[in-house]
Design a binder for these strands. Structure first.
Length: 244
DNA sequence: GTGGAGTTTCCTGTTT
DNA sequence: AAAACAGGAAACTCCA
């Protein structure tokens, strides 16, 4: 259905997004080095300040609409039903899937998303929500003293996924929140996501679990004699509901 | 350049 | 039989 749509059709008038344009050409750069569009409002920079993996379904929908408005994309090209997904699922979409879901618009959307992912972000969704009164989707406000999840350790990555139930795609779930016991529901998906974070497409659950086992020595994790079940240890912090 | 922390990779063997 | 667990060993990356 989208074959007949040409560049000039949906990229009319003002701005034409060349897929080879650099990030700064597309968005410009803020004083603190974070990319933002020069005519973006404060709320627009939301998309570059929160890692896409942490976007909710609602955020994904808003991002699509933002891109349509900002880059003069024809919203009619986009099958919004294909994007009834959260940020994690969005990040796991291939370029082909973007093309299927949004035709040539998908090419641009994919490009823009990859730029956002590649160029990082300043604070995770929960912490950003602390800055923004009211937060995101009414999520409670947590502050872990972290400013950049891309530099976080594996256990922090796991913890943060657990603390974002909407965004973790069912990869992890609490078994006993009070005791810090959690279960890896989708082991390969977890490994894939960790691999994405570390830019290592050879990551497997076997290797990830080896790294987790090293945490037993340091008290970050405690052994639970059940498959795919782990427990935060005395040296892990930031996971307790009332101590965050 | 060096050393340590935190993985990553590979491996063999065991358990579920 | 397959998946997960256990943990040794070495390599690797990053940072101070």
């Amino acid at each position: 259905m989208l074959d007949s749509v040409t560049h000039s059709t949906f990229l009319s008038n003002t701005m034409v997004c060349d897929p080879l344009m650099s990030w700064t050409e597309l968005f410009g750069t803020t004083e603190d080095g974070y990319p933002t569009c020069d005519h973006q409002t404060d709320s627009d920079s939301f998309w570059t300040s929160i890692h896409p993996e942490y976007w909710s379904k609602h955020n994904v929908c808003e991002w699509l609409q933002f891109c349509c408005d900002q880059y003069k994309l024809d919203a009619n090209c986009i099958s919004f039903s294909h994007f009834n997904i959260n940020g994690l699922q969005l990040c796991n979409m291939t370029q082909e899937e973007f093309l299927d879901a949004a035709g040539i618009c998908g090419e641009y959307l994919y490009f823009i998303l990859q730029n956002i992912r590649t160029h990082g972000y300043s604070v995770p969704a929960r912490d950003k929500a602390c800055v923004r009164a009211g937060g995101i989707n009414g999520q409670e406000c947590h502050s872990h003293g972290r400013t950049n999840l891309q530099s976080s350790h594996l256990w922090e990555f796991v913890r943060d996924l657990l603390l974002s139930p909407e965004e973790n795609g069912g990869i992890l779930e609490w078994e006993d929140r009070g005791q810090g016991i959690f279960r890896v529901v989708k082991s390969e998906a977890l490994a894939k996501m960790w691999g994405q974070r570390k830019k290592n497409d050879r990551m497997t659950y076997e290797k990830l679990s080896r790294a987790l086992r090293y945490y037993y020595k340091t008290g970050i994790l405690e052994r639970v004699d059940r498959r795919l079940v782990y427990k935060f240890g005395k040296n892990a912090h930031g996971w307790q509901e009332n101590k965050i």
